[in-house]
Design a protein around this nucleic acid. Structure first.
Lengths: 165, 165
DNA sequence: CTGTATGTTCAGAACATACAGAACATACAG
DNA sequence: CTGTATGTTCTGTATGTTCTGAACATACAG
């Protein structure tokens, strides 16, 4: 078992999480499940990552809410194990779905409202600037919708992209 | 002057910032510059947003580092004014450029390294899972490269997207 | 039932971040 | 020069987040 490489990946994944607003512990647990590709139970994770059981429990709950891990029951074992979503793109889509819903949709609603009001208002504010922002967010919204509606096609499409030398 | 609508937008932009890992004050200042579309000096921002001068100064510095605002000198006024990048897409590209450089590139480098080592190693880790992750990050890298290399085309392309009803 | 294994929630400690105000730096007017 | 206007950096405090260990809940074996 190549402990050191696992650590490397887990810490990288943790760092990446931090950069994107995901708690470090949560991301490390996720990283562990990704890189080892086998089910882990809480106490094994506690032991492996040297963090408290409550922290692991909370992190797993968080990961479940993003639909990127699932419970696995091993026959003859009372403990609950967790394994990560096996398809990386599927994982990404699940995260996108959640983030769009939690973060993009409310913002878009709010900006649209402001935009509407601004058109009627006596003004003094940059109406077309505001419209530009709304338009940009709309584009994201549409891209996300398209991608999430046609997951298979997106997967196929990205595989056509030129590889960097 | 429509104070209330400005507040609405500024707070929304601040909230959005928080969701994407940008400090709330930084995002609010940015929002103010976006929505009013005219140059502001520090003390005006202090007065308008009711935050300290040091906070505004730091926030402006941060925004400058993302290349989304620029200094403006008004004739006959010693103060430094700031206005935001006038083109929303250009603003987005500038942010993408910075985030890619600061966050994606280092992660990609680290994962690539781990991936190489894993191929040679005695294993026990999920090599193909790791490769899948690397491949996904590569796709992002390529997409970002393409977009940033052909900004005009991207702007043209997104305008073709279907609008939501 | 009862005791043990397992998992979750809670409360406070440790840590990190954000912010205001003070101190400092700079540059210009007179 | 000197004093004032303007901006930046520093420092301590307040606020918020994360993490641990303990308390609590649940479920199963015997």
């Amino acid at each position: 078992m190549n402990e050191e490489l696992i650590n490397q990946f887990v810490e990288t994944w943790g760092t990446m999480g931090s950069a994107w607003g995901v708690n470090n512990s949560v991301a490390r647990v996720h990283g562990l499940l990704i890189i080892t590709d086998r089910p882990w139970c809480i106490d094994e994770i506690v032991e492996r990552l040297q963090i408290s059981k409550s922290n692991v429990s909370t992190s797993l709950k968080e990961l479940r809410s993003w639909n990127v891990i699932r419970k696995v029951f091993l026959p003859g074992d009372r403990r609950e194990f967790y394994a990560c979503e096996p398809d990386a793109w599927e994982m990404l889509f699940n995260i996108m779905r959640q983030r769009k819903q939690r973060e993009l949709d409310p913002i878009l609603a709010s900006i649209s409202l402001t935009c509407e009001q601004a058109k009627k208002a006596p003004s003094g504010i940059a109406v077309d600037r505001l419209a530009q922002m709304k338009q940009m967010l709309d584009v994201f919204d549409n891209l996300a919708r398209l991608a999430l509606k046609s997951e298979a096609q997106v997967k196929a499409l990205v595989s056509l992209l030129p590889n960097r030398k």
